[in-house]
């Protein structure tokens, strides 16, 4: 799978704001197997970019293509197919079902298009140190724990692209590394690409391409 950007500029950008960006208003493509690191300060449109790529928002000019299909023409049904099998995401604002247990949050994603067996959830939770939280309500978990739940949830499906929007903002260094290792292993297993946005460069993310917004 390939994701292509053709002169994409957010509608809300003031004229000239995209000047000097290596991504906005450029033509470039990302392919499976690549690791792409996008670094930018706050307010430069990192979250907007991830939302554009995932198809949550359409307030931009230019085109984003999944293979050769312009996603502005997709309806909700078509997006659901791509999201089940080709693109997974970790939102900056996590987007968990706070009134459900941790396990329910993970299972609802896994069951949609199962890539792993249920036992793998426990193994992943153990690896990221939240195995004792599985039966707890999500709302009772700390933000750092919820961030790890969101990471594990994103890994329950098949994907060609894993979109990460500042996924470690509330994790300590040790947990960041563990989570990154897990995600890279899972991406490698699927021969998938990772697109990671963050405020600064993350050393333990082995990126082939580094882009500044």
């Amino acid at each position: 799978m390939q994701i292509s950007l053709q002169q994409v500029v957010p509608d809300f950008f003031e004229t000239g704001k995209s000047n000097g960006s290596q991504l906005w208003n450029q033509s470039l493509s990302f392919s499976t197997g690549e690791n792409i690191h996008i670094v930018a300060p706050s307010g430069s449109g990192k979250t907007s970019l991830i939302h554009f790529l995932y198809g949550l928002r359409k307030d931009y000019s230019g085109h984003i293509l999944y293979d050769n299909n312009d996603i502005k023409n997709f309806d909700a049904e078509k997006f659901s197919t791509w999201r089940q099998q080709n693109i997974s995401i970790i939102f900056q604002d996590l987007r968990l079902f706070t009134q459900q247990t941790v396990l329910e949050n993970l299972e609802i994603k896994r069951l949609l298009f199962p890539y792993h067996k249920e036992s793998r959830i426990t193994a992943m939770a153990k690896r990221l140190g939240i195995e004792n939280k599985l039966t707890k309500l999500c709302s009772t978990c700390s933000y750092g724990e919820q961030q790890r739940i969101a990471i594990i949830r994103a890994l329950q499906q098949p994907f060609d692209f894993l979109l990460l929007d500042e996924p470690f903002s509330h994790l300590d260094e040790n947990n960041r590394q563990k989570a990154m290792e897990l995600m890279q292993e899972e991406a490698t297993e699927r021969k998938a690409a990772i697109i990671l946005t963050d405020l600064k460069k993350i050393d333990y993310f082995q990126a082939e391409r580094m882009l500044y917004l």
Partner: peptide
């Protein structure tokens, strides 16, 4: 909110 999130996660509106 829950239904919106299910759709975001990839659940199809038809299903």
């Amino acid at each position: 909110d829950n239904l919106q999130l299910l759709l975001t996660l990839g659940y199809s509106p038809g299903w």
